[in-house]
Amino acid sequence: MTDSSTTDDATDRSTDGETTRPTNRRSHVREEYGEIAATTDGCCGSSAADATNEPEPTAADDRARSIGYEADDLETAPEGANLGLGCGNPVAISRLEAGKTVLDLGSGGGFDCFLAAREVGPEGRVIGVDMTPEMIDRARGNARESEFENVEFRLGEIEHLPVADGTVDTIISNCVLNLSPEKPRVLAEAFRVLDAGGSLSISDLVATAPLPQEVREDPDAIADCVGDAAQIESLEAWLEDAGFVDVSIVTEDDWSEALPVVSARIEARKPA
């Protein structure tokens, strides 16, 4: 196994910039996403109504459609769950089955959790974990307004998941792994909580070449999901080091004109 598992995380531990230290990075990201969660209509638009009281499409809805969600997905989730975040549709690639248990890393307002709940049905279970209290409050409020009784949201860091060993069938995540200053630990935790034969299906941003140091140390670039996008080779090594097999990272759309960052589907499996 190569030593590339240290490539992308080294910046967080060696830099003299206080904002890029893991604890301070988490605080900055938590603050940014807390502000998004606290806004009435999310980060990307308002939910206006026309004369017939039918909600007009929001910028968040338009963004969701642009990254792979269907109109039926937007209708399934309760209003306020889609915050216009993410870079793909992990539920669509996860091939969820009825009765299974799903864990969403960085669940935000709960959008993907509600879509997963539809797929696993009432006999299944969906757990969302997010480190931002405002996001958890919003997601729990959305759950109370929904028809889904098999969804719960837990406050916690994805580097230290509040989930028991071997209790999850599928893990999904949408543009959250790149925010973590300790990505290998996140993947090790994912491996721990998966049952044997369980799968990982992530939509995230990855770097196709090294990013400039000033970008990697910019707290706003990190919070915008591009500043600490990991290189593909590093992700592959971290997944294999954690114990995953059948690792697949498929790049999709360019995400930035100025930086070598693209969206990707990241899939892997815990051995049976």
Rank of each mutant, 00 (worst) to 15 (best):
T2K: 14
T2R: 15
S4R: 13
S4T: 15
R13T: 01
R13W: 11
D16G: 14
G17A: 15
E18D: 14
T20W: 08
R25F: 00
R25L: 10
S27V: 00
S27K: 11
E32G: 00
E35R: 11
A37T: 04
T40S: 06
C44N: 12
C44M: 11
A48T: 15
A49N: 03
A49H: 15
D50E: 13
A51N: 11
A51M: 07
E56S: 05
E56G: 06
D61L: 03
A64D: 01
S66G: 05
I67N: 02
Y69E: 12
A71F: 03
D72V: 04
L74N: 09
T76A: 13
E79R: 15
N82M: 09
L83Y: 02
N89T: 03
N89I: 02
N89S: 13
N89V: 08
P90K: 09
A92I: 03
I93A: 04
E97D: 14
L103Q: 05
G106R: 03
G106I: 02
G108V: 03
G108L: 06
G109W: 03
D112A: 12
C113Y: 13
F114A: 01
F114D: 00
F114T: 00
L115F: 06
A116F: 04
A116L: 10
P122L: 10
E123K: 15
G124S: 12
V126H: 13
V126I: 04
I127G: 10
G128W: 10
G128A: 09
D130F: 02
D130N: 14
T132G: 10
P133E: 00
I136M: 06
G141R: 15
A143Q: 15
A143W: 07
S146Q: 11
E149V: 00
E152V: 12
F153G: 07
R154M: 03
E157I: 00
V163S: 05
V163N: 01
D165A: 09
G166R: 14
G166W: 08
T167M: 04
D169E: 12
I171L: 11
V176D: 06
L177A: 10
S180V: 04
P181Q: 02
P184G: 04
A188Q: 13
F191K: 00
F191E: 07
D195Y: 00
D195M: 09
D195S: 07
A196N: 09
A196C: 03
G197I: 10
G197T: 05
G198D: 01
L200K: 06
L200I: 04
S201Q: 01
S201W: 05
I202C: 07
D204C: 08
D204Q: 01
D204H: 04
A207V: 04
A207P: 13
T208P: 12
T208G: 12
A209G: 09
A209W: 05
Q213M: 07
E214P: 04
V215E: 00
E217S: 08
D218N: 15
I222W: 14
A223M: 01
C225D: 04
C225L: 10
G227T: 07
A230H: 13
I232V: 15
E233R: 14
L235S: 02
L239I: 02
D241S: 10
G243F: 08
V245D: 14
S248K: 11
T251A: 00
E252W: 07
E257L: 10
A258G: 02
V261L: 05
V262C: 06
V262M: 05
S263D: 06
S263V: 01
A268Q: 13
R269A: 13
K270I: 03
P271W: 03
A272W: 03
A272L: 05
